[in-house]
Design a protein around this nucleic acid. Structure first.
Length: 457
DNA sequence: CGGCTTTGACCGGCGC
DNA sequence: GCGCCGGTCAAAGCCG
């Protein structure tokens, strides 16, 4: 698939996301609109989506109809009465539809609430069974990845993603943003083990991701031996690398044992001497999944496009972390969280005030990135990545990424409680969703502007 | 021509 | 000590 097509998909997605707002707008207009207006609404009721352009066309069409009716009205007063009656009938119909929508919305809310409760319960139960080291995964995007629990291990908490529901219920009203939080407890959070076993166990949830084109699941781990932290990001991405807003230079490539797909090594070149490195490798079981592992701490301010999602990740992180009372939180200062950036003190201007969200200052420096511009010269190479279609000249679509910190020394009981609570809280907390939405929308807007610019609009 | 990718060589950690 | 393996280096080549 070409990058243009991908861009078109993104645009289409935006169009769909705006349907709800536009719908409401139309309903307001409906009070003094004509019958044609209702015609459009009926189309929407039938499940047919109207994009922004479609809406514009519709309104112009409406104007024409109004003119026609005006003409008719001047000529025939009886027809005018008929139109008035029609209008009344349509308004009544519209009210009925509104009420129906309300009822449906309530059903959705109830379903979601029930789902969240179940999710929390599952997390609670699992953590009581496995009070071990934790990993936290954050998924952003149009879908999420399923984590099949490995037979015999049972260490990963399998939680049906919020995305599943949002995909079913809210795909016509929401931004297409879904949040999925997973808590993972494993005997060894080191990435090397993760890469060897854990990563392979990650499976794509559904094919929505392929069309959604933007999805990440991240895990963050601290190697207890070296105190080196790593962030592993899984993203469905057709390109050779995921665009995370930073500039990278490839310095090596190796074929790792057990995975015929070569692992590429990149260094951050945004600033000289930046120690951050990343490894990029295709998932063995699903070539469309790109596993990116970040290591190190940026010694430079992040690109603007990279900060928004980073803030979301930081917000998520703060939700997932033990509170300040936990003395172990001080380890965050000594053991730099992977892919952190101390320059992200003020997460993002896109976001609402984060005071209430950044409870732990030690984690305000989490770095995450998403950008629509591929600054790096990470050109796809079909020779290197045979699965990457040669028709992709440039991965214009960018997989977002986010990172969540994990305490190297997570405190048992309190952590478990707060983690379980936070899992549910983070999904339902309006601040968090607002932060993520802001991040995603900034990403989408950016991408949208770029594509619009390219199309000469 | 500068910056990047490619790729074989090299190095260090780890298990046997 | 040896071999394996992951990670890094650096020269050569490519590209805009």
């Amino acid at each position: 698939m070409s990058s243009k097509k991908k861009r078109a998909q993104t645009i289409m997605h935006i169009d769909l996301s705006l349907d709800a707002a536009e719908d409401e707008e139309r309903e307001v207009e409906g009070a003094h609109a004509d019958g044609d207006q209702h015609h459009h609404q009926q189309e929407e009721e039938g499940g047919e989506k109207i994009s922004l352009n479609g809406g514009k066309e519709g309104s112009s069409h409406r104007e024409d109809s109004q003119k026609e009716e005006k003409d008719q009205g001047c000529e025939n007063p009886i027809a005018k009465d008929t139109i008035k009656d029609e209008l009344c009938a349509l308004q009544a119909e519209m009210d009925r539809v509104k009420e129906e929508n309300k009822r449906l919305q309530e059903v959705i809310d109830r379903t979601l609430n029930g789902y969240y409760e179940l999710q929390m319960r599952v997390a609670d139960i699992q953590q009581q069974e496995q009070p071990k080291e934790h990993r936290v995964s954050l998924s952003l995007g149009g879908g999420s990845f399923q984590e099949p629990t490995k037979a015999g291990e049972g260490e990963q908490i399998e939680e049906p993603s919020v995305a599943d529901q949002s995909g079913d219920l809210g795909d016509d009203k929401e931004l297409g943003l879904s949040l999925s939080l997973r808590t993972l407890a494993g005997p060894h959070a080191d990435t090397s083990e993760e890469k060897g076993k854990g990563l392979k166990s990650w499976q794509p949830l559904d094919d929505k991701l392929q069309t959604g084109g933007f999805s990440t699941v991240t895990t963050q781990s601290i190697n207890p031996a070296t105190r080196k932290t790593r962030v592993s990001v899984r993203a469905r991405c057709q390109g050779p690398t995921m665009n995370d807003g930073c500039q990278w230079r490839k310095y090596g490539q190796k074929v790792a044992k057990g995975n015929p797909c070569p692992r590429a090594y990149y260094r951050c070149t945004v600033a000289q001497g930046c120690p951050v490195r990343k490894q990029v490798q295709r998932c063995l079981e699903d070539m469309s999944i790109l596993i990116t592992t970040y290591e190190g701490t940026h010694n430079h301010p992040l690109p603007v496009g990279a900060t928004a999602l980073a803030s979301a990740a930081a917000t998520a992180a703060n939700f997932m972390l033990p509170n300040d009372a936990n003395p172990s939180s001080s380890t965050a200062d000594t053991a730099p969280l992977s892919y952190l950036n101390p320059y992200l003190a003020n997460p993002s201007s896109h976001l609402p005030p984060m005071n209430s969200l950044t409870r732990s200052t030690g984690y305000s420096s989490i770095f995450g990135a998403a950008s629509g511009n591929d600054h790096g010269r990470q050109q796809p190479s079909s020779a290197t990545y045979p699965w990457a279609a040669s028709s992709i000249p440039n991965p214009g679509f960018a997989g977002g990424s986010s990172w969540l910190p994990n305490k190297g020394t997570w405190n048992g009981e309190d952590a478990n409680k707060s983690l379980a609570g936070n899992t549910g809280a983070i999904a339902s907390d309006s601040k968090f969703t607002a932060a993520v939405q802001a991040a995603i929308s900034s990403f989408i807007n950016k991408d949208g502007r770029t594509s619009a610019h390219r199309r000469g609009e």
